[in-house]
Design a protein around this nucleic acid. Sequence first.
DNA 1: GTCTATAGCGGGATAGAC
DNA 2: GTCTATCCCGCTATAGAC
Lengths: 211, 211
Amino acid sequence: MAQTSDTSARILDAAEALFARLGFAATTIKAIGTEAGVNPALLYYYFADKQQLYQAVLDRRVGDFARRAANLPAEIAPLEGIRRLVKAQVAFMQSSPHVPRLLARELADHEAANARPVIRELSTGAFRRLCELILAGQDDGTIRPDLDPAFTAISIISQTAWFFIAQPVVSGVMGYDGGLPAEEAAQFAEHAVRFAHSAVTVRPDRKREQP
Amino acid sequence: MAQTSDTSARILDAAEALFARLGFAATTIKAIGTEAGVNPALLYYYFADKQQLYQAVLDRRVGDFARRAANLPAEIAPLEGIRRLVKAQVAFMQSSPHVPRLLARELADHEAANARPVIRELSTGAFRRLCELILAGQDDGTIRPDLDPAFTAISIISQTAWFFIAQPVVSGVMGYDGGLPAEEAAQFAEHAVRFAHSAVTVRPDRKREQP
DNA sequence: GTCTATAGCGGGATAGAC
DNA sequence: GTCTATCCCGCTATAGAC
């Protein structure tokens, strides 16, 4: 029985886990084969070489996110749009347990030969949309006009991004020594949305902040 | 003339640059020697092996930051304390152009043999202090009581952390295609402090946010 | 589609001359 | 302290049988 797609999926799964855990250079073809339960030489039947296997791993994960982020309704209240983008971001980070690490490595390796334009896709997808939402909110008076839209977009995105990518720090600091429970992530997402809304909305405030 | 310290410093500089750019596994002893302008075999005179060289690289950078973060005055207004911690964080990220990448790799590699407890030092240093500040602010009424202190600390730290670590994304998205100018980082730090203050301060606000 | 065997290269680390 | 020479290992990738 020809198990082409099944075998290649097993290879991709094993490769994803190992690339995430060890990085591109430290992951060996043999290790991937062993982890996948197939003969290492077989990898070269399905993928041209190690780099293309790596890129296939990334494409499988990042592809659907680009789709998902574009799915925001064109006309939507800015604050609600921000909430949805944060939720989509969380969903992406949780779409595989290895996504945050793969992303961290991609950030570090962005100029390496094996790197992907993941970066472009993620930014053009979500970031641009977020900037538009902020501008729209400043126009209709729901968002403070003194905020720089690009900086604000970074501030909003950073919360969830950092929460996942810095998970070894975060879980250590919060007292979970063996990785964070999934519900904690959902609660943080709630917090992140509220934190962002609170920072961003206009307010009739009399107090001055120190210069 | 015995140039012990000079030579070892040159080795550390070269190693730092290469470990940041290529990662631990992809960086070769020969490449470090060449980059440093010394004979590759000489590295083994100064450092026991590749891993200890890597750890020496990290220790050199992280050491002084742990000191710096602890330097906050014990009695300080919470909002001002937050400002200072953010500034210290920026200073650390800029203490060498390679720090953000090294940190990104350390986050991804945290369970590898070459990894350092950098993570513990950074969190116990800055994060705990930040949580204390938030709690103090909630006690004296300057900080919203409904915020979770740990989550809020993460939100504050994340802004600057992400800004630097995700620099390939950030500079691309902001239109700088060849790396970010240094002044932009200072402006972002200003923004991050204001964003955090705005999110965190109590306010006499009548509007409800959507549930 | 899957396996065995191996070519060919480049890495970390050491011995020992100077 | 610095350099040359080299050992030994494990990796990527391929050839070719089944």
